[in-house]
Design a protein around this nucleic acid. Structure first.
Length: 739
DNA sequence: GACCTGCTGCGGCTTG
């Protein structure tokens, strides 16, 4: 029997109504993988490749054709990382389920309590929910979980790739696990994604006990033709006489804005500017260019600090084919919210990961016969005598090239699987105790570690965490006479507040208000005062009043302004990306997608790289007491070595694949320090400040636990030790050769 | 040298 015939009649009718000539291969594969089996399944296809239907056509059929395990409860559970995505998918599923008369229930923070209480009284159909709302159900209604999910056939995880490596992903795996323990049944898991770097690790995420049994349904190669141009621009330094032309504004940003304005006007596009500050800067310039020509506005900023109203306005304009719209944005427009297809994706500066570049490009070329177009812009510094080697090697441009090359090879960053996730573990200990009204240490360990996602935590470490959060000054948990663990004084306070359900940290912010209307938010660490001017939401403002206690800033329209500071963490670059960068630096081929200026910059970078023989000498003297070490590694290993060197009094700065070391304050020679590191088994002794508190529940952990947590993911000791001996060996070879 | 995501229950009010 073919795939279509195996579906329940209401779904066959729905497919006919859609006017589809046939099912797509990935949908046929999904139907065959799911119907009549208990398989866990991963479905990967390009954005808008029909993944949702590939999963839900057979899953809904299964609900209609087979008897449920119990009379009440949700038949299917869909978990989405965004409220907007849940709203989109609710509409699609309602359409698909109408004929089948199956209820579709959206559930997140913006959904009214009426919908929720009705669904709790008579749970059935498809539940679409966020990880946080699901956590809230477990914590608030722990005793109802077995009833609510006792009939659930499958859990569908949308945008699986965003969950693999993150704190939220660990929480979600724990929730799926807790659901199976509460209902006493194994529940099928179906993951959907457009960009999975390593399907092996995705399988492991989905079902750790049996990753090999997870069935993979892959759509055959996307098909859209890929067009790319990389344009290089110069900034700073002395502008040569012949380049000083009539135009007032010679900055690279102005030139890029002008090019974007000319190329993108009249169609729908996305411009990824790299940071919220840069988004504001380019949106402002593009608006001014339009106003100068008396043209209607079509360039708008979009990022997470802007008000919901403004963001929804921009998203709606993007969906509307009749109004040309370009959004200058951050990764807010990277995920699967349906904004239709855009003509071109522009990227200013090199992205941090190939995975996000791929995700962004998935937004363009979605209509048959239309290419997917990338316009990459890169600004480099004009070189002077005193210019730094990182500028001479044109590392920004080289990284942009490496990213495009890796994208063409279809390589994406894999998730790291060794992380301990102690912050999230603390959260889940509190959550499980709240869900069950108390738990023994043994039961907790089985639920969370031996059977759960914290498998890297052994019993010794687990007990150390319990002791730490049970200590009298932390008081998150306490133990009763019969050995059962309960929430402590502080633990109860945390769990009672609604801010408990999310496992990730969010900064404190000011609200920006103009005449009673919210424009958006700004991190509180901005240094602002009345009279100062800023660019925000694509317009210029003057600060009128600051209300510290209410965290409100009142503003009024202004003619001047600069983008405010939005803060942020340093990005993380994978080893493979840095390796590719060195391949580019050492290579000869000039990619055809470089403009003349970019090609000249690449030639210059290669010339400077060859001149300093950085490929040959791993340690290059760059001044009287400064050196450049070529680590040829990504930021985790490079950071670890830099931290270890810092322990010896060296001052360090980090670049892609390089560490600059200043030896002035150091107690010993650089080579001797490297030798000591190379001989070590552990580096912890050398760190000066290796207790970073970056995650939400880190403040409750001890220095020792924080260091173990950092070493499991943000630092790589063995990698750094190996790197130190590798660098030494190559310098010794070099010395021998010179003799 | 960065980006993003999420949130309950209840008291008290108005309105039909």
């Amino acid at each position: 029997m073919n795939a279509f015939d195996r579906l329940a009649p209401p779904l066959q009718k729905w497919i006919r109504q859609q006017g589809w000539p046939s099912l797509r291969p990935v949908q046929t594969a999904g139907i065959n993988a799911i119907l009549g089996t208990n398989n866990d399944v991963i479905i990967t296809a390009a954005t808008a490749g029909g993944k949702t239907e590939a999963a839900f056509l057979p899953l809904i059929s299964d609900v209609l054709l087979e008897e449920p395990a119990q009379d009440h409860g949700f038949d299917l559970v869909y978990i989405g990382p965004l409220k907007a995505l849940i709203n989109d998918q609710t509409r699609r599923l309602e359409d698909m389920c109408r004929e089948a008369e199956l209820a579709v229930v959206p559930w997140h923070g913006d959904i009214g309590s009426g919908v929720k209480s009705r669904a709790l009284k008579a749970p059935r159909g498809v539940l679409l929910i966020t990880p946080e709302s699901l956590e809230a159900l477990f914590v608030r209604r722990g005793s109802s979980i077995a009833t609510l999910f006792g009939a659930t056939r499958a859990i569908v995880l949308d945008e699986l790739h965003t969950l693999l490596d993150s704190e939220r992903g660990i929480q979600l795996r724990s929730l799926m696990n807790r659901m199976e323990i509460a209902t006493g049944r194994q529940i099928r898991r179906v993951g959907l994604s457009a960009t999975l770097g390593d399907t092996g690790l995705a399988r492991h995420f989905l079902r750790r006990e049996a990753p090999d049994d997870v069935v993979l349904c892959e759509a055959a190669g996307g098909g859209a033709e890929f067009q790319v141009q990389l344009r290089g621009y110069l900034t700073g330094g002395k502008v040569p006489e012949d380049e000083v032309a009539a135009k007032d504004d010679r900055s690279a940003e102005a030139a890029i804005a002008m090019h974007l304005f000319e190329k993108l006007r009249g169609s729908n596009n996305l411009v990824f500017a790299g940071s919220r500050g840069k988004v504001e800067l380019y949106a402002d310039r593009l608006r001014l260019l339009g106003e100068a020509q008396g043209l209607p506005q079509e360039f708008y900023p979009h990022h997470a600090s802007l008000s919901k109203e403004h963001r929804e306005f921009v998203e709606k304009r993007l969906k509307d084919a009749s109004l040309p719209t370009t959004a200058v944005c951050t990764s807010t427009l990277e995920l699967g919210i349906d904004i239709g297809s855009v003509t071109c994706v522009a990227q200013i500066g090199a992205p941090f990961t190939v995975a996000s570049l791929a995700q962004r490009l998935g937004r363009s070329g979605r209509r048959a016969g239309q290419p997917s177009i990338l316009r990459q812009y890169q600004i480099e510094a004009r070189l002077e005598k005193s210019s730094h080697l990182a500028d001479r090697f044109r590392l920004g441009l080289v990284r942009a090239i490496a990213m495009i090359e890796l994208y063409l090879q279809k390589w994406y960053e894999p998730p790291r699987s060794s992380a301990l996730h102690l912050s999230t573990l603390v959260h889940q200990i509190l959550a499980v105790i709240a869900e069950r009204g108390g738990a023994s240490a043994e039961r907790l360990y089985v639920t969370l570690c031996s059977k759960g996602p914290f498998y890297a935590v052994d019993t010794t470490l687990f007990l150390a965490v319990l002791r730490q959060i049970g200590s009298s000054d932390i008081a998150l948990i306490e133990q009763s006479d019969n050995g059962l663990l309960f929430l402590g004084r502080q633990g109860e306070k945390l769990v009672e507040h609604y801010s408990f359900y999310a496992v990730f940290k969010t900064p404190e912010e000011f609200r920006l208000v103009e005449q009673g209307k919210d424009l958006g938010t700004l991190p509180v660490d901005n240094i602002l005062a009345p009279g100062m001017t800023i660019i925000f939401s694509g317009r210029r403002w003057e600060i009128v009043e600051i209300h510290e206690r209410e965290k409100v800033i009142l503003v009024t329209r202004s003619k001047a302004g600069a983008p405010p500071l939005f803060g942020g963490d340093p990005g993380e670059i994978h080893n493979q990306v840095v390796e590719k960068m060195f391949e580019v630096l050492e290579g000869k081929a000039v990619p055809i997608y470089l403009c003349k200026q970019a090609a000249a910059l690449l030639a210059e970078a290669r010339g400077n790289f060859a001149l300093t023989e950085a490929g040959f000498h791993r340690i290059i003297a760059t001044g009287e007491d400064s050196h450049l070490i070529a680590t040829r590694k990504g930021s985790v290993v490079t950071n670890t070595l830099a931290l270890a060197l810092g322990g010896f009094g060296f001052e360090t700065s980090i670049y892609d694949g390089f560490i600059e070391v200043r030896t002035k304050e150091a107690k010993l020679r650089l080579e001797d320090a490297l030798a000591l590191i190379a001989e070590s088994k552990r580096l912890s002794l050398f760190y000066r400040q290796a207790e970073p508190q970056s995650e939400k529940f880190h403040p409750f952990l001890s220095a020792d636990l924080l260091q173990q947590d950092a070493l499991s993911c943000r630092l790589d000791e063995t990698g750094a030790i190996r790197l130190a001996s590798e660098i030494l060996a190559s310098t010794q070879q070099q010395t021998a050769r010179n003799r």
